Simulated scan of single mutants.
Amino acid sequence: MSQRVIFLLVMVLALLPVAISQVSATFYYNGTVILYFNKPEWILIPSNWTLATSQGVVEKGQYVYPINTSEIEFHVKTKGVIQISQPNISSVSVLLPLNSKITYMSPTPISLNEEGQYVNITFSGGNVTVLYYVMDQNPFLNPYIYTTGVSSGVTAYLAYLLWRRRPSPQITPPNELDDRDMKILDAIRAGADNLNKISELSLLPRTTVYRRVKKLVTLGLVEEIRERGKVKYVIKGGAK
């Protein structure tokens, strides 16, 4: 056997695990996460995920491994924020109610389809962030009537832009905000315009600041401004 043939065989064998070790995730808006394995693979699980599958799974610290199952289910508390950062997940499908409004989504999805009472937004890779809230249903404002069968990223993104034009709910009155929200608003008023500064001034963890700032942006109390690749936050419209 020639050296060239041996080299090609080695390359094929090296690439084979990459081709078949595909792990995909389905993340429901209610906090249910299901991982699907084409081949057993160790997966690092975030600390806020709770393992729901009790059989056929090996746990080792924050890692899990399927031994006689192709699916593993988890539960995670979510309030309008769906986030996954897993380099060994090949694709993520986020299922939201049709009467949802997305306020932020990254990266651009590869597909967006209506499935029963849900919209299925699919992303390539395992680094996904979706911020949303559920609003009153109005079938005449449902963009999926016009986008069923979307398959390209460009069309999906256009559908997403159309979705964002749906009517926004009324801003939550200040008396419905809690102490942490008020601390963050006070910090922004004092000049803290990024997550690190807001965290330092409010004395709140950065992860908490991230979630609360996105909530305040969704409620229309804070404005997110992007300039030259940087993000800063300011009080919107003189909110008190």
Rank of each mutant, 00 (worst) to 15 (best):
L9G: 14
Q55M: 07
E73I: 15
E71P: 01
A192W: 06
T155E: 13
K77P: 01
I20G: 03
T53A: 09
V18D: 07
N138V: 12
K183N: 08
K60D: 12
L161I: 04
Y160E: 03
K77E: 09
G191F: 01
Y210F: 14
Y36T: 11
L95T: 00
G237H: 13
L13I: 11
R228I: 03
R166P: 01
E115P: 00
S54D: 14
E223H: 06
D179P: 01
L203T: 08
L185Q: 11
G220H: 04
A192E: 08
L131D: 09
S168Y: 04
G237M: 10
F140I: 12
R228K: 07
R206S: 08
G126T: 08
M105A: 14
K79E: 11
Y146H: 09
L51D: 06
Y144M: 14
F37V: 09
K232P: 07
R180N: 13
S151Q: 09
V94T: 10
S21M: 09
F7Y: 14
T172E: 05
S91M: 04
V57G: 09
S152F: 08
G125A: 04
E73F: 14
S93Y: 02
I82D: 10
F7H: 13
V217I: 15
Q137Y: 13
S106H: 05
G191N: 02
S54T: 13
S124D: 04
N38D: 15
Y157V: 00
V64E: 05
K232M: 11
T26C: 02
S199P: 11
P109F: 00
Y29W: 14
R164L: 08
T147M: 03
L35C: 11
A156V: 07
Y28P: 07
Y28K: 14
P97A: 05
T53H: 10
S21D: 13
V94K: 11
A187D: 06
L13N: 10
K60M: 09
F37H: 12
A25P: 11
G125V: 02
G116L: 07
I235P: 14
G220C: 06
S85Y: 11
P87G: 06
T148F: 07
I45P: 07
Y132W: 13
N99R: 03
V128M: 04
T129Y: 11
S111W: 05
S151Y: 07
V217L: 10
P139E: 07
D178K: 07
I67Q: 11
S91F: 03
Q117C: 00
N175W: 12
V5K: 14
Y65F: 15
T26D: 09
N142G: 05
T147E: 03
A190Q: 09
Q86I: 03
D136E: 08
I145K: 02
S100H: 01
S70P: 05
V154D: 11
T78F: 00
W163C: 02
I121F: 04
P17A: 05
T207S: 15
T32Q: 14
K236D: 05
E115T: 07
